[in-house]
Simulated assay, not measured.
Amino acid sequence: MHDTTLTAQRLDAMHRDGFVLLSGVLAPARIAELREAIDRLTPIGLDYQGMLDDHYKCVFNRSPFWLQFLDLPEVIELAEAALGPDCHVIGQTAWRNRPGFIGGDLHADYLVMTLPERLLADPAFELPMQVCTAHLYLDDIDADLCPTLVIPGSHRAGRKPEAGETHWHGRVAEPVLCKAGDVLFFRSDLWHAGSRNRSADRSRYLLQVHYGRRMVAQKFSPYLNFSFNPEVLAAASPRQRRLLGEHEPAEYD
């Protein structure tokens, strides 16, 4: 049974900190299945396979197996609370980051518009979310294994970080250390970064699910050449079909 109080608390954290960590969402057997499934993936379209990292886009379209991760319990309730009951998926990407992987600089994924920070500093003003991401971790994440770095509250900056910027209001990026099966859920305007894989022999496995409001476009690669896998659509539940884009008619349909 869904705990509405817990979802409300997590939604408060999204508005306050810009992110929340959900513990133990995936069981060990499911984690093992996911890792094996990522190992079997081969590049299609704009997917990338390199010396230090691999990433595979729109994996929901590969087979019905991936559908179950679009609407995981606890995650989907938070996504719908943050983005509306008619939100949808705008991406699902599988990653494998090998030893030596470099990561990325501090950034914000998506910002609807820049806003004056004094407006966002007003506790009475609550900035709506437009896009959120769920990181499904398939490894125990320690300081050496590519922890995601976040600056709590930085979504209230009203802008993206500038090149070389490393802190906001005196706060530097903090690593999210967690267990395999945990999910980091964060809003797209949060300042965050990927970090290096400093381990000697471990690869980080990660599945991302990106959610957007109804009017945020679904941009599935390879874009104009994208088509849904009939096997996936046939297996999808009504909620999963909505997440894939089967909406009730709206103003611009």
Rank of each mutant, 00 (worst) to 15 (best):
H2W: 04
T7V: 14
H15G: 03
D17Y: 06
L22M: 15
S23P: 05
A27R: 15
R30W: 05
R30Q: 12
I31R: 05
E36Y: 06
R40D: 13
I44R: 06
D47F: 01
Q49M: 10
L52G: 00
L52H: 12
H55Q: 03
R62L: 12
P64K: 06
L67Y: 04
Q68W: 08
F69Y: 14
V75H: 10
I76M: 02
A79I: 01
A79M: 00
A81P: 09
A81S: 14
P85K: 15
G91P: 02
Q92K: 00
T93Y: 04
A94S: 05
R96S: 01
R96M: 11
R98H: 07
G100V: 05
G100F: 00
I102R: 15
G103D: 00
D105C: 06
A108F: 00
M113G: 04
L119P: 00
L120P: 11
L120S: 11
L120V: 07
A121G: 07
P128S: 14
V131M: 14
T133E: 15
A134E: 07
D139C: 03
D140F: 01
I151F: 15
H155C: 10
A157G: 12
A157E: 05
R159C: 09
K160F: 01
K160G: 06
K160S: 10
P161K: 15
G164F: 01
E165T: 11
W168Y: 15
V172E: 10
V172W: 05
A173D: 13
P175I: 11
P175A: 07
L177P: 09
D182R: 06
F186Q: 08
W191T: 13
N197Q: 13
D201N: 05
R202F: 03
S203C: 06
S203W: 01
V209R: 03
H210D: 10
Y211M: 12
M215T: 15
A217E: 08
F220S: 06
V232M: 07
A234V: 06
A234F: 11
S237M: 00
R239D: 02
R239I: 07
R239V: 03
Q240E: 15
Q240H: 09
G245T: 08
E248Y: 09
D253E: 03
